[in-house]
């Protein structure tokens, strides 16, 4: 995953910051408990957002507990967990496993195979518990690598494919929210994939790697990305979330641009020199 779905911390209230941190720490803890300490390295902000978002939608318990953890041994800190935290931790490991497996199949990179092996045992249990999710992740990643290999120039095609994957991750269960969650997840995934491609374009051209935005003039990137996020927030509004609304909107309207803006700034500074 990419880790782009973060909050703009400067614009959060103290309570919102605390809520965000506790969600993050809860997921980190759940990963460690369920899948071993090593799995914590797979933790991403994208998954933290998934926990925050679904917990708010389903009104799940987010009452914080306190503890000291390995990373902060001196100061006790707050965290919260619920069934969605565990779901996200499982999905995080499955994603990591299939991604490494895919990289191994594509590039025969031995490191990827070793990493896939690390999570193979853990993923066995997850695949039994969530056969549909795991099949969806695997199929989307397989299809995406076929599209990328074919050198597809239409950016909608690979980004729809990645969106499909994200859409499935947002569907916790087939209920009244499922379809709206799926379309929201799809549009968010699509945005993430394209933003990543926009940021990597120059490097990819220089390294002669595939990039779906290669035929699009970079002057249009901002228009395109805004269109995609506008679409995503339209779908977000359909879900009528009231809890943690400001925090979630901070992420969708501002935080999500953090890395993009950082890369843009770095480029500008380099050009000045």
């Amino acid at each position: 995953m990419f880790g782009y779905v973060v909050a703009n911390m400067d614009k959060l209230t103290e309570e919102e910051k605390q809520q965000y941190r506790s969600c993050y720490c809860g997921l980190c803890k759940s990963l460690g408990n369920r899948h071993g300490a090593i799995s914590r390295i797979t933790l991403t902000y994208d998954m933290t957002f998934l926990v925050l978002f679904l917990s708010a939608l389903y009104g799940k318990d987010t009452a914080p507990a306190k503890e000291r953890c390995m990373i902060h041994p001196l100061k006790a800190h707050e965290y919260w967990q619920n069934e969605i935290t565990d779901y996200a931790a499982d999905m995080n490991v499955a994603l990591t496993y299939y991604k490494f497996l895919d990289d191994w199949t594509d590039d025969r990179n031995i490191l990827s195979l070793l990493e896939a092996k690390v999570f193979q045992e853990e993923n066995k249990n997850i695949a039994v518990q969530y056969p549909d999710k795991c099949a969806a992740i695997r199929d989307c990643l397989d299809e995406l690598s076929l599209i990328e290999k074919s050198g597809e120039l239409n950016p909608d095609i690979p980004s729809n494919c990645f969106g499909e994957l994200m859409g499935e991750l947002f569907v916790l269960r087939e209920d009244e929210y499922a379809q709206r969650l799926r379309t929201f997840g799809r549009s968010l995934g699509k945005f993430i994939y394209i933003m990543d491609a926009c940021m990597d374009l120059k490097d990819d051209i220089e390294k002669e790697h595939y990039n779906p935005m290669v035929t699009t003039s970079s002057e249009n990137f901002s228009t395109i990305l805004n269109l995609l996020m506008a679409d995503c927030t339209e779908k977000y509004k359909q879900l009528l979330i009231s809890r943690d609304k400001d925090l979630i909107e901070n992420i969708l309207y501002s935080g999500i641009w953090t890395k993009y803006e950082a890369v843009k700034n770095k480029r500008k500074e380099r050009q000045k020199q």
Partner: peptide
Amino acid sequence: YGIPIISMNKICIG
């Protein structure tokens, strides 16, 4: 919101 600035370490150094 203004331009978001990276301040990841504010969340968790982990």
